[in-house]
Design a protein around this nucleic acid. Sequence first.
DNA 1: GAGGGGGTTGAGCAGTCGCTCAACCCCCTC
DNA 2: GAGGGGGTTGAGCGACTGCTCAACCCCCTC
Lengths: 219, 219
Amino acid sequence: MTGGATGADTRTKLMEGALRTLAEHGIAKTSARSVAASAGVNQALVFYHFGSVDELLAAACRYGAEQRVARHRDRLAGVTTLAELLRCGRELHEEERAGGHVAFLAQVLAGAQTQPRLAPATTAGLDLWTAEIEKVLVRIVADSPLGEFTDPAGLARAVTGAFVGLEMYEGVDPEGAERAFEALEQLAALAGVLDELGPVARRAVRHRLRRTEKVQGGA
Amino acid sequence: MTGGATGADTRTKLMEGALRTLAEHGIAKTSARSVAASAGVNQALVFYHFGSVDELLAAACRYGAEQRVARHRDRLAGVTTLAELLRCGRELHEEERAGGHVAFLAQVLAGAQTQPRLAPATTAGLDLWTAEIEKVLVRIVADSPLGEFTDPAGLARAVTGAFVGLEMYEGVDPEGAERAFEALEQLAALAGVLDELGPVARRAVRHRLRRTEKVQGGA
DNA sequence: GAGGGGGTTGAGCAGTCGCTCAACCCCCTC
DNA sequence: GAGGGGGTTGAGCGACTGCTCAACCCCCTC
C-alpha cells in the first residue's frame, strides 16, 4: 500500500490544507506534518512539491487570496457607496469566518513581520484585495470631494490594512469589533453627506485645505 | 556557580525578554529557551515564575502595553485634531520600530486568534490603547458633527484595530503603508472641514442621515 | 549554629520540528 | 518485456520544544 500516483492535484490539496491549518491553529502550529495531515497526504510531499514549509505557505497565501477575491469579486462590483463597502466587507468576513476560513492572511502577515521570505507572498495576497477595493473606491468617489482631495490608491491600501486589523481585533473581542464597525458605518454615512455639497461649499473646502497645508508646511 | 538569589527582578527581565523576542523573531520562534536567553536567565525560571509559556506571554503583553501607553500618554494629551492624532500615531510607531519594539501586540494578537488563552491579555493590552485614543477622540470631536453623529467609544476601537493592521501592513510593504497614511491624512484634513459647518448645514446633515437610516432599515 | 523557604541551576524526558533518503509504485515510451 | 521518470511512502536524523526535577545557594528566623 505504498507509492503510486493518485492523480489528484496534491499541490492544491497541500495549499488548501495549509490554509485550513493556518486558520484553525495559527502559524505557530502550522508545520509540514500538521498541514499534510489536514490535506490527507504524506508530509514528505511538502518538500517534494514546495521545497520548504515557507515556500508552501507563500504559495498557499497567494492561492488563498486569489480564491477569496475571485469568489467575492461580483459582489464588490455592485457596491456604490462607502457604507455599502463597509457592510459588504463585514458580510464577506463573517461568511469566511463561518466557513472556517478566518484570517489566514492575518496569520501569514504576522509571520512575515519577522520572516522576510514570507513578505513578498503576503504583499501579493494583500495587493489582490487592494486592487479590488481600489476599483470600488474609484467608482464611489469619482464625483465626490473625497475623490478630489484624497488619493484613492492610497485609501485602498489604508482600507485593506485597516480591515486586516479589525478582522484580528474581532478574533479577540467580538463585541468591541461590533461597536467599531457600527461607528465606522456612521462615519461612512457622514462621508456620504459630503457628496451633496454644492460647488460653493467645495470651493470653501478647497480654500480651507490649502490654508491647512500652509500651516503644516506643505506636501 | 549555581543557585543564589540575584535580587534583580527576574519576572520583569523575563517579560522584557519576551517582548524583545516577540518583536524580533515572531511568536513562532518565541519559546521558553529563546526568551530566557534574551533575558539572560535560566529557562526553568519561566515555569517557576509564570507556570507556562502562555502565561508569560499574557503577562508580557499587559506589561508591554502599559509601558508603551505610559511612555506616550503625555504626547497624546496634546493632540487636538484628527490629523494630529494620525501624525502622532505614525511618529510613535516609527519610534517604537526604530527602538526594535515592533508590533509585539500584533504578534500576540495573531497568536490569540487560535490560542484562546492569550485572548484576554491581548484584549486588555488593546483596551489600554483604546482608552487613551477614546480620551483624545472625545476631546477632538466634542463640538463637531463627528461627535454628534458617531459613537466615540466605537470609533476609538476602530482606530485601535486599524492601527494594528496598518502597523503590520507597514512591516511587509512600507511604501504601500506610506501611501495609505498619506491618504488618511488627507481624509483627516477633509474631516476637519466638517467642523466649520454652520448650524444650518448641520440641520441638513441630520435630516439627510435620518433619510438614509430609513432607507437602510434603521438602527 | 540549625533550620527553612525563596530563588536558581543544569540535566533530562517525551514529544515535535524541518528535512532527507532509499525504497517503491504507476504509467509512459520504446 | 525492459527501462525510466514522476509521484509517493515510512523511517529516521539532529535540533528544538514545553516542562519537570533534584540539587543547590543565599538569606532570614530562631
